[in-house]
Design a protein around this nucleic acid. Structure first.
Lengths: 204, 204
DNA sequence: GAAACAAATCAGGAAAAAACTGAATAAAGA
DNA sequence: TCTTTATTCAGTTTTTTCCTGATTTGTTTC
């Protein structure tokens, strides 16, 4: 029996999914978390074989958390279980140590196959993501630096270059050229499109 | 026994939630849909007592669909079942004829109480939404006109006022003043913040 | 029906911000 | 080490923002 835990802020999803998994003979659920803080504490008490991890948690980003946990517990296998069919997110998650990536709109059977595959230490991607990654295998993922993420956030909140510059104690020109890089990276023509694309890619 | 159907593009959620509801003695699931088209066809064959409806479906917006269905089947009771804790969306849904609004991160028990309450023809809101609507009871929901939505979309796609004006065969000044109205309505300082807020409110 | 209101259209100008081009230094990865 | 990328700063042009208006049409309210 494979020991599985779930971290997802949708209690209803966690509860019903737990029941479904427990009713199968594949795995048993030994922990349910609705935020990253509780999940971190739970894992410290003993890690399961597999952690099913969502991306949008109330207190942080699941993809970043994935990097943190696979570093702390190298034996822990993580399957991202999320609604985001986004090249960048999937690529990022796998780079951060996730061994599986399953969409919530995948066939329910896939999660069982995923759990079994990943428990043997093999990578598992649900069909749609597998196709997506193969299609874009020559595309490289977009990585934003911390500075870029910071300036992107200020921009999305409506702050001008000058205001942002004051916040981070830098020259306006610095912010302007960082914005220029953001426009290049996301292939946007102006700030409005940049914010739009950033939301599409769940960068914000 | 209350006759319930579900429309949500996350198969995994639909499947596990269906099981949970079927195992209870409250209701039974008589239909599962993963898109609006199939849901529309299914309802045409016979409406259940209650439809659990998600908002982000692959082929359209659940809130708009809610208006369409309550008009076609006045006896159909709809509970929005979604992850969005957004004043505007909730308000919009209720205005469009939804009788219930339950968050996916609500306590799983709430969906059973919701089903029972709504089946009696009474409104049901999960706790968090109930609090949200009471807090903002004096706030009015933001409604965008078709023109505003159109210009918002062009803006999010990176087109300037001039370019947008050419697309819709209107003067630049018209687009400018429409943008000004959008900034006012969403209380945004510039286009970047406007697009950010529009995404937060799921206006795009 | 009249009054009040909102939406959609168009107008112009001053100030501010963003977009474009360029470039030097520092840091990180190969 | 060499190459690439991040970070920093600068000048010029284009665009947006922020004011001020006005007219017409359609809808809602009294």
């Amino acid at each position: 029996m494979i020991d599985v835990q779930i971290a997802d802020d949708h209690k209803m999803v966690v509860e019903s999914l737990s029941r479904m998994i427990n009713e199968s003979s594949v795995a048993r659920i030994t922990g349910k978390y609705y935020d990253l803080k509780t999940c971190r504490e739970g894992l410290a008490k003993g890690t399961p074989d597999i952690l099913l991890l969502d991306i949008e948690l109330p207190d942080g980003d699941g993809v970043d958390f994935c990097a943190e946990m696979t570093k702390t517990y190298p034996e822990l296998k993580i399957i991202m279980l999320t609604g985001f069919k986004e090249f960048n997110i999937a690529k990022h998650a796998l780079h951060n140590g996730a061994l599986g990536y399953v969409l919530k709109n995948a066939d329910p059977e896939e999660i069982f196959i995923g759990i079994e595959t990943v428990s043997r230490g093999e990578q598992f991607l649900c069909e749609e993501i597998d196709i997506l990654l193969k299609e874009k295998k020559d595309t490289k993922a977009i990585w934003l630096t911390d500075r870029e993420k910071e300036i992107l956030k200020y921009t999305a909140d409506g702050y001008t270059s000058k205001e942002t510059a004051d916040f981070i104690f830098r020259d306006v020109e610095t912010v302007k050229s960082c914005r220029k890089n953001l426009l290049l990276k996301l292939k946007a023509k102006n700030m409005a499109e940049l914010i739009g694309k950033a939301y599409e890619m769940k960068l914000i």
